[in-house]
Design a binder for these strands. Sequence first.
DNA 1: AGCTAAGTCGAGGGTGCCCTCGAATTCTGT
DNA 2: ACAGAATTCGAGGGCACCCTCGACTTAGCT
Lengths: 184, 184
Amino acid sequence: MVTASRPLRADAARNREKLLAAAAELFAERGLDVPLEHIARRAEVSIGTLYKHFPTREDFVGAIFPERLAALDVIGQKALADPDPWHAFANYLEDLFALQAQDRGLNDILARDLPNAPEVVSACHRGAGHAEILINRATEAGTLRPDYSIADMATLTRAMAQVIRDAPTEWRRFLSIYVEGLRT
Amino acid sequence: MVTASRPLRADAARNREKLLAAAAELFAERGLDVPLEHIARRAEVSIGTLYKHFPTREDFVGAIFPERLAALDVIGQKALADPDPWHAFANYLEDLFALQAQDRGLNDILARDLPNAPEVVSACHRGAGHAEILINRATEAGTLRPDYSIADMATLTRAMAQVIRDAPTEWRRFLSIYVEGLRT
DNA sequence: AGCTAAGTCGAGGGTGCCCTCGAATTCTGT
DNA sequence: ACAGAATTCGAGGGCACCCTCGACTTAGCT
């Protein structure tokens, strides 16, 4: 049911963009839970207009994050191109959390059990796909402990989300200790 | 200014106990942020009465947690009595997080930057004292990486709080990986 | 039994956020 | 320039939580 709706009126298109920009900023600064009213205010648009364009918070997430999640693919590709399995895996983790540390919204999304927007879900699945390959390579090379799994990475991601939130300077150290524990 | 206030009236004392019991349960079940109104309801007491006895949420925390934090001292003593420095340290961590996993309120307190009730603060300091000794012993014995510090343990505690919250069965595995990374 | 200080109650005011809807405005094709 | 459709606006209703205060009740003393 892809209704080929006619193009938006000029003012509407402008407002939509202002809303997206405001939401993108606020999500990155304050996380996914910013009050929608704040978004409307920063966009200099009324709350009613906001709801016209984005009836739910998920609609914002779905409109904003696919683009950002593309960064996930980039670091995934980079890691897959690395010939050293261990190095690829460890660097992937670094890159992943560096990404999370830059964007509170992304941090929330990856930590949360409920990123329901379909675009977001599929991006996460792709990410998990990359991760799985990297894990397998590293275990086969004998450098990563053999029982390590995606589930462990999910746990790690949530833990890191917390560390990033309340001690943004210390996540690298924390991660390096953890990773040390993964080497065989 | 320890005002030796005259004893509470019988009904007041009873209500106070009911409130404490209700708060203790709800903190443990749901964490420190339960609505005060829920506590009043479970205690079968009006909201006004609740405020009479405990004007702020901190008053509840201060009344309930000192007792629970005594468990911290217990595991601290146990660890200090252990002759094997590494074993003492590693077991202390296990015991500490087992405690957190049993009680969402405690989990919140240890993870949060704001446990302001003085009794709670001092209990945390005592805990940190034990931890420091255990760390020193283990580093001197050469089994713990030499740069490990209390600050790292604080970070770990917050990370574990998160893991415990959203994957209560996996914290042991997560911890064991991390601890593996600490051994020299 | 009667008095009074102590305690209890819960309606209600305040805040912050969510979301809706009808009146007012503005774009755009003719 | 105008009509009509599309869009905007923001007041306002709802909800959940916070906290206060004055009217009512009761324990406990004499």
